[in-house]
Design a protein around this nucleic acid. Structure first.
Ligand SMILES: [Zn+2]
Length: 349
DNA sequence: TTTGTTTGACCCGGG
DNA sequence: TCCCGGGTCAAACAA
């Protein structure tokens, strides 16, 4: 059994409890360059010449045989990762960062500090100036991947982004001229250029579906970036649907909640809380509500003037059962490219 | 219910 | 052929 040595060796505490060892292994993988690979521990063994057990891990990816061994020095002060094999699949992408929901909550969190362009304003096609994306919390600000994304956001260049993506995901390289010509072709747009990149990658790594998934995440990120820049206009549709609502019976302004349950009519998963900004005690009185938005399934809710009551006897009484919902479909049908002479419908890969 | 860990048994090559 | 020891399996267990 030949294990190749990794350059990474960490000084870790020499304690040897099981939980400590687990913690350490997580820490070690976390600090290594490929912590996004999913691995499963399949064995642990005391080895001669060490007070500490050796742990064995296998990559979780189907058909990938990469194995890692965590080996502690005799004293237990350092631990190193040994490798066997090479991953036959791209490194998993972190999940999509720029969902509309994320943008909106970030915006909400920071509204007193930075003058962001409301995502909604962009969505409705208002003429806006570019926001500075200083909207990432400190805890993730050092994440390299995030830096990459932020760079993309600040100076989004389709060719740059695509090339970056190609190299990261080990996809079939595309000639820069090809990309360029496609980007600027009158009947082409960012969407289908990116689509062709994704297809190329999927073909090459035939059996992999997560290439597609991570591509989709990235694609959505890029589209959202475009949205921020005002290049993509989100098509907005609204309709009325009914849901089950219940009042929590509280009577504190701003804390008073109406729980909106799952809408049963059209299979949209909605879950949110409405906070009343007034205290009333008559179920027939309409009050203004602000809404905690749950972007599950890209559904956004706007609820206004819902009647409710704070009388204890009226607990759970909510008069209005209809509200308006707005659909924001990022990267799906309804994404329209409106800038730079480009046109056409977008489509999910 | 799902996902990952623990742990003793088992496998297998080398001496 | 037996024994040793690193590596792996998989049932039980845990969250
Ligand atoms: Zn792998």
């Amino acid at each position: 059994m030949q294990w190749s040595t990794c350059s990474l060796a960490l000084s870790l505490n020499a304690e040897c409890s099981a939980s400590k060892a687990l913690e350490d292994s997580k820490l070690l993988f976390e600090r290594s360059s490929d912590d996004r690979y999913k691995r499963r521990k399949y064995g642990q063994k005391m080895v001669k010449g060490s007070k500490f057990p050796r742990s064995y891990y296998k990559c979780q990816h189907p058909k990938c045989e990469v194995k890692n061994t965590l080996k502690r020095s005799y004293t237990g002060k350092t631990t190193e990762i040994l490798y066997k094999g090479t991953h036959n699949h791209p490194k998993p992408q972190p999940s999509c960062l720029f969902t509309v929901g994320a943008l909106m909550s970030i915006q909400e969190e920071n509204q007193d500090k930075v003058s962001y362009v409301p995502a909604q304003a962009v969505a409705t096609g208002m003429d806006v100036t570019l926001p500075q994306l200083n909207l990432i919390s400190n805890e993730v600000a050092n994440d390299l991947d995030l830096k990459r994304r932020r760079t993309n956001v600040d100076t989004l260049d389709v060719i740059l982004v695509i090339n970056l993506y190609i190299s990261e995901q080990q996809l079939q390289p595309l000639n820069a001229e090809t990309i360029h010509s496609q980007v600027h072709a009158s009947n082409s747009n960012f969407d289908n250029v990116f689509q062709s990149v994704v297809n190329g990658g999927v073909d090459r790594l035939a059996e992999e579906t997560d290439v597609c998934n991570s591509a989709l995440n990235f694609y959505i990120d890029c589209l959202v970036v475009k949205v921020i820049q005002g290049v993509v206009q989100k098509k907005k549709t609204s309709s009325k649907i009914s849901v089950e609502m219940s009042d929590d019976g509280s009577n504190k302004r701003g804390k008073d909640e109406i729980i909106v349950g799952t809408n049963t009519e059209d299979n949209v998963n909605i879950s949110c809380k409405i906070h009343a900004n007034k205290v009333v005690d008559d179920v027939n009185t309409n009050v203004d509500m602000c809404v905690d938005v749950d972007m599950t399934d890209n559904v956004e809710m706007h609820v206004n003037n819902v009647a409710h009551s704070d009388k204890a006897s009226d607990k759970n009484a909510v008069k209005s059962e209809e509200y308006e919902r707005e659909l924001f479909e990022i990267g799906g049908e309804g994404v329209v490219i409106v800038g730079g002479g480009e046109g056409g419908e977008g489509g999910r890969p």
